[in-house]
Amino acid sequence: MSAVLQDTIERPEIKSIGEYNFPSKSAQALYGDDMLLHVWWKGNPWFVAAACYRVPQAMTFGEFWEGVFVPYHSEDPDFNAEGGWGQFSWFIGNGRASTPISPSADVTLADLGLTHKSVLGFTGP
């Protein structure tokens, strides 16, 4: 189940030589029950950009931490997996704005409020 997002822009007038209306090549529907998720270690330049993963919307945060997050971030010699996710402050990035969240092992990524192509950010330790 994915939340309905509020549009931030309207469809502008299109100048073209014919009918011009093609679908997104990255639409959520193309990923079945999965979604693309951006994971952004804000303030740590070791990872030059946020990561992009394909993950099930129903994946729990505990599974995500163990199976996706830790293997990727262990490439930073200063990352300490033992510290657990409690060592970071978590948020959903929204352009320049952000909304803090508190993840726990059993809550799903979707229930944390994460939707297709959204940004799961964290800072610290």
Binding site: A27, Q28, W40, K42, G43, P45, G95, H116, K117, S118
Partner: peptide, 18 residues
């Protein structure tokens, strides 16, 4: 901010773009 990547997004017809 030398180490804070810029993040922008727009939502168009129900889909987010970064």
């Amino acid at each position: 901010e030398p180490f804070i990547q810029a993040q922008r997004e727009s939502i168009f017809e129900g889909e987010r773009y970064n």
